[in-house]
């Protein structure tokens, strides 16, 4: 932050993160310039939450952010197949279950069934 007597005023850049609900992570929305963290919060709300709702905002001075480079593709290189870590790596389960006259089960089904069929009184 600096200001000469020429009337030039330089604000700090703050990166803005908004949390939509407490079940969501904070998501980067963009940035604002402001003279202080308080004003940055205020400007962030005006810029990014005129319609959408939110429960929390973080503003972080840009100079405090440490980031990876964009122009080094090697940084994110996947040197080997990672199918073994993923759901899609186990698609043969469906075929195997069929042999036992059953269907493969997925997380979505579990979540849906829990929502649709609440536990009966015991």
């Amino acid at each position: 932050m600096n200001h000469g007597d020429s009337g030039r005023i330089q604000y700090d850049v703050f990166e803005v993160f908004v949390q939509k609900t407490q079940a969501d992570p904070h998501v980067h929305m963009g940035s604002v310039v402001a003279p202080s963290p308080d004003m940055a919060l205020h400007t962030a709300r005006e810029n990014f939450l005129r319609r959408e709702s939110g429960v929390n905002i973080w503003v972080v001075p840009r100079r405090e952010v440490t980031a990876t480079p964009y122009d080094d593709p090697d940084y994110f290189a996947r040197e080997m197949d990672r199918k073994y870590r993923e759901v899609s790596g186990y698609s043969e389960n469906g075929r195997l279950w069929k042999m036992y006259r059953e269907k493969a089960m997925h997380l979505d089904d579990i979540v849906r069934d829990l929502e649709e069929k609440p536990l009966r009184d015991r």
Partner: peptide, 29 residues
């Protein structure tokens, strides 16, 4: 609401322009 939106668009875009302009020695002002 519309007037607010347009001013908001101006702020977002000037923010983007500012980062492009910085290496050229130009500021928001």
């Amino acid at each position: 609401a519309k007037v607010q939106d347009e001013m908001g668009h101006g702020q977002l875009l000037l923010r983007v322009a500012e980062d492009i302009a910085a290496p050229l020695g130009k500021t928001r002002e």
